[in-house]
Amino acid sequence: METLAQFLVNGFALGGVYALLSLGFGVIYNTVRIFHVLHGAVFITAGYITWVFVEHTGLPLYAAGIIGVAGATGAGMLIELGVYRPLRKKAAGFLTAFLASLAGMFFIEGFLVAVSSTDLKVLKQGPLSVFHLGDVVIAYFHIIIIVVVVLLFTAVTLFLRSTQWGRMIRAVASNPELALSVGINSNQVFLMVFALGSSLAGIAGIFRAYDVGLEPVVGLQLAIIASIGVIIGGIGSLPGAALGGLTLGLAQTLVAFLLSGQWSQPVAIIIMLAFIVFRPYGLLGTREHKELRRLL
């Protein structure tokens, strides 16, 4: 029983990071309709920038972290301006944009390997400090992750629900042509969406870099996780995306606990396939299920 509780704690910590990542992916996907694999690059960019500042300038972690998130936000906006917008201008399709994104991801990965080797970059030394709740061990840092994720989720939801910008974003997501007719510049909205989604990915990246470290290959790996989170949560639903990410974290932890750590990656794909077949609109999605079938 204690071990089950322990696994739940571990699962929430892992799932929290996934939830942030999926939330960012979802914000972008829902609005721009782009399979943004480079989200993974944005995610590691934040971690690497933070690591460079902590390691080479001795900046305190929080300051380096702010620079890291700003860097990720900028990187996301640059990707929109430099990759996706030109492609949209050329009326490139979904697949072209996806392939461009994938190529970009490989490029960034190769670049990081070239400039900084494949070494793991961890923002801390030694184990996390923990406290005990009965027999269950909880790391303070994991509590921070969970609290921050809940706060960010609430903030993003509030932003999208009750600000003019939020409505503009959702309007573009819902009916891009009509959005034009009520004065919404969709390019500007897309840029905003990339900034928002990328800052979420950046925060997730720093959490990850502090908790278990980053290496270049994680980018693609976690971009896949983020997209799976969105799919199982229900495309089009942001609470769904967050819930999807959390579910994945819990599932991976549970599988590692019940079977073996070797199954934690395959289980993510298996869950996704199960959703596509049996519940294509995901946990909370109600609308885009037709799109999901078409997409996959």
Binding site: T3, N10, D211, V212, V218, T253, S260, G261, Q262, Q265
Partner: peptide, 20 residues
Amino acid sequence: EEAYIPEEKDFRSLLTKLKS
């Protein structure tokens, strides 16, 4: 005996199990 894959970086479940 516990196996893991190299992509995995979160070994907490594996270790929790091992601890028991």
